[in-house]
Design a binder for these strands. Structure first.
Lengths: 218, 218
DNA sequence: TAGATTGTTAATCGATTAACAATC
DNA sequence: TAGATTGTTAATCGATTAACAATC
């Protein structure tokens, strides 16, 4: 028996990546409107501010539900909170950082993440001379402790800021321990099971894209 | 008189962003093949390694030229170098970093960039207590010196690792001084002239995407 | 109510994949 | 030469934009 899929995508897994990648930007603009005391906004007004089409905004939002009202537009506070809920940032997430180098420390010290509910619960490093050092009020632990730490503390997210050499091995252990997502800064593609999410931040690739665009500029 | 556009896109500005974003990944895989002593590769073999279609690889590459040979495939070293040339990383680029916080320092210390020809020429910060401190062999300079420094040293790229409050103002000054591209880590959209390239790295947005995907995972 | 603006369908546009003749 | 594999055209698929009836 075929059940017609309901509109609001309760299964949630058929929304295109392009749409999902735009949600945080909507969220950022709504936050700003909220800070400026703006109560409501139409897709037309928002489209001008964000430099996208009003059509796209309405299409994107309607993937998740009808958050607006004809003749009125969208209530900023309400839409803001709905997007937070969609993004899963209406509750906290526990993170550990593996790799206590410059980048790992930068992320650990990044206050804004905590504001969004991403809480750094621990840091790990394989280098004995780094282990034990303090970073943002917590001591850097040795790699051997990672697996149990993930299990014991229900860690959801692993921020991976180590060279590519050991990245897949660390990922494998973290997956075994039940990690849900990996924020990958290592310069390689991780191999993980389907139920584990990987979000790549390949800084050198981003810089190469910039280089390309500069080169092609008249 | 209408001149039919030649195939290799000498004007260079009509290639889709999707293609361009894939180039650094091709480059990374070719580098790896090169390191492993692989001499030639077919689009079919590469497609298996990279988990994309062979068709896409051939289409992407043919935006820039016919780098392969029927019955043979692609010469790894040659294609590697050609992609480097396309990306504009066959020569060095001068960078300054504005914002000598954790992230700025992390980028400054990131040896891999130098390997790709991105050379950090200076760092700047508005905080007097940071100015003068050493970072990777060079002293952090006060913001007031940035404009002249860009001009005098022919700086191409500005890595912007400051809070959003002053980001647009710094960008404006850098543009006046002749900057070609901005690698923007600030949580906002910069407003720059058309001939200046902006590449955004919005870390919190990346983390929100990860959060979304975790939430939707069964 | 009249005007504004949504939600949603239809039309367009662009990107990906498939297919195959060309050719090494 | 025969087999392999490209470069490229055509077919398909998906995403964006336009249009407008529904409705607040």
């Amino acid at each position: 028996m075929i059940v017609k899929e309901i509109n609001h995508h309760m299964d949630g897994n058929d929304i295109s990546l392009a749409v999902i990648k735009r949600l945080p930007r909507y969220y950022r603009y709504l936050e700003e409107l909220l800070d400026n005391g703006v109560e409501r906004i139409s897709s037309g007004d928002l489209s001008v501010r964000m430099n996208v089409t009003a059509s796209q905004i309405r299409q994107d939002l309607n993937n998740f539900g009808g958050f607006g009202q004809q003749g009125y537009g969208y209530n900023v506070a309400y839409l803001h909170d709905e997007i937070a809920r969609i993004l899963g940032i209406d509750h906290t997430h526990s993170i550990i950082i593996v790799g206590a180098g410059n980048l790992g420390k930068a992320i650990a010290n990044y206050a804004n993440f905590e504001k969004r509910g991403f809480v750094v619960r621990g840091m790990f490093d394989s280098n004995p001379s780094v282990v034990g050092s303090e970073c943002r009020g917590s001591k850097v632990m040795p790699m051997e402790m990672m697996k149990d730490f993930i299990r014991d503390n229900g860690i959801e997210i692993l921020a991976l800021t180590i060279p590519k050499t050991n990245a897949n091995e660390v990922a494998r252990i973290a997956v075994e321990a039940g990690i849900r997502g990996i924020w990958n800064f290592a310069h390689m593609d991780l191999t993980v099971p389907d139920n584990v999410v990987v979000e790549n931040v390949h800084l050198s690739e981003s810089l190469m894209t910039l280089s390309y665009n500069i080169s092609r500029q008249k």
